[in-house]
Computed example of a mutant assay.
Amino acid sequence: MDLSRRLNMIMSNIDKCTCLADIGTDHGYVVVEALHNNLCRMAIATDINKGPLEKARKNLMFEGLAERSSCRLGGGFEPLKIGEANAAVIAGMGGNLTRDIIKHDFAKVKKMDYLVLQPAQNPEVLREYLYSHSFEILDENVCLDDGKYYECFKVKYNKEHNNKDKKFEEIDYEVSPVLLNKKDSTFKDYLLDKIERYKSIMTYIKDDTDAANARKEQLQEKIRMIEEKVNSYEG
């Protein structure tokens, strides 16, 4: 199966596990690939919508993987029992929704060996939640796929692990300290793209109201801080 860059990034973060849950499976490509590559013995594909779930079911049957998989209708981790899956993927949703899915079924999440999370928007919202709720960050990645940047988190809940002694600034949730430390060229391009997008937004703020000026100041400060991160980037 010819996967997109963002799906390949997800696959590269999946370690061997007994049962993988793909939350919001869409067409089921992740579970098909994981089963074919023996990354899991069993897989559970869930989706809140019947259409995508039926497509996933058909793809799994076509690939001869029906006996090693289960397709279940429902939102988030709701279709799973506690301890049934020991790893999970949540991709294609916003950072806010991904966070809320984790919060809603935290008892199930705590039992898992790891989660692979790839928010489609607002990764900073998810990062702030993960950094402040005893999640151990195993890895973070970024890729450019079809003109859009995607961030990926590999994490596990660890009650012994907390960041209370670390002081995070607001910019650390938007500009990943983990990715910055990697000095990856794609991440540098991602930061430069962020700067250009914020500059573009500023051009649309024409009003001279207090609210508009406050928004412009906020954007200017974000641009300044991201530029500092870029300037400190070696290579």
Rank of each mutant, 00 (worst) to 15 (best):
A214P: 13
R215L: 14
V230D: 09
E234S: 14
E124T: 12
K154A: 06
E217I: 15
L144D: 04
E170Y: 13
G76S: 04
E170Q: 15
F62K: 15
K148E: 11
F62H: 15
Q218T: 12
A56K: 02
K194M: 03
N163A: 08
L60G: 00
Y129R: 10
L179A: 09
K81P: 12
F62I: 14
V175M: 08
G76D: 06
N162M: 04
L35P: 04
D172L: 09
V116A: 08
K111G: 13
A85R: 03
N162E: 00
Q220D: 01
Y190F: 10
I102C: 02
A212Q: 09
G95S: 06
R72W: 05
D22F: 07
L144H: 11
K188A: 10
F106L: 04
Q121K: 14
K55V: 11
K206H: 15
N181K: 12
R68V: 00
G94D: 01
K148F: 13
G83Q: 11
D105N: 12
I223K: 09
V155L: 02
K108Y: 02
P177G: 09
H27D: 00
T46R: 05
Y149F: 03
V125R: 11
L20V: 04
K199I: 11
D100E: 05
K50A: 14
A212I: 10
K16C: 14
L73V: 07
V175H: 11
K111L: 13
D113H: 11
L144T: 05
D146A: 10
K206Q: 14
N213G: 08
A212N: 09
H27C: 08
E228C: 10
N122F: 10
